[in-house]
Amino acid sequence: SHCAGCKEEIKHGQSLLALDKQWHVSCFKCQTCSVILTGEYISKDGVPYCESDYHAQF
């Protein structure tokens, strides 16, 4: 499978399933500020955001 963030193949190591896609753990980050999302996040149109950036933009 391929990472939804960087589009590279996910080989051995940690990956996560979010928004119905596979991601490298380090690629699942806020679209705006690039903080790596480990806990709470909000998505809009399949794109992840941290809570503060989501509320600031939408």
Rank of each mutant, 00 (worst) to 15 (best):
H2G: 04
I36K: 14
H55M: 13
Y41G: 05
E51N: 11
D53A: 04
I42Y: 13
P48W: 03
L17N: 13
G13R: 06
H24M: 00
C3F: 01
K11H: 14
L16W: 03
L37I: 07
A56E: 12
S1I: 06
I10Y: 02
W23E: 04
G46L: 04
I42W: 09
F58I: 14
D45Y: 05
A56C: 14
Y54H: 04
D45R: 07
L16P: 08
G39I: 04
E40Y: 15
E8Y: 09
L19A: 08
H12I: 07
L17E: 14
H2I: 13
Q57M: 11
H24C: 07
C27N: 02
L16R: 15
T32K: 13
V35R: 10
C27A: 02
Y41P: 05
S15G: 15
Y54W: 09
V25D: 08
C6P: 00
D20R: 11
C50H: 02
K11Q: 12
Q31W: 06
F28P: 02
Y54V: 05
H2V: 04
F28T: 03
Y41K: 03
L19H: 03
V47G: 06
Y49V: 05
Q22S: 13
S52C: 06
C33G: 02
G46S: 05
F28I: 03
L37E: 01
C6T: 01
C6S: 01
E8C: 02
D20Y: 04
L16Y: 13
K44M: 10
A18Y: 07
G46P: 01
T32V: 13
E9R: 11
T38V: 10
L16H: 15
W23H: 03
Q31I: 09
A18E: 09
H55I: 11
E9L: 12
C50S: 01
H12W: 05
V47P: 03
Y54P: 10
E8W: 05
K29L: 01
V35M: 06
F28C: 01
I36Y: 05
A4Q: 14
L19G: 11
A4S: 15
G5W: 04
H2D: 08
H12T: 12
L16M: 13
I36G: 09
D45N: 11
G39W: 03
V47D: 06
L17F: 10
V35A: 10
I36C: 15
G13Y: 08
A18S: 09
K11I: 11
H55W: 11
D20Q: 11
K29R: 10
L19P: 03
L16I: 13
E9V: 08
T32I: 13
C27Q: 03
A4G: 08
G46F: 08
Y54L: 05
V25G: 14
P48H: 05
E8Q: 08
K7W: 07
H2R: 05
S26A: 14
Q22E: 09
L17M: 14
Q57I: 15
L19Q: 04
F58G: 15
K21S: 15
S15K: 15
C30S: 00
S52V: 11
V25A: 13
H55D: 12
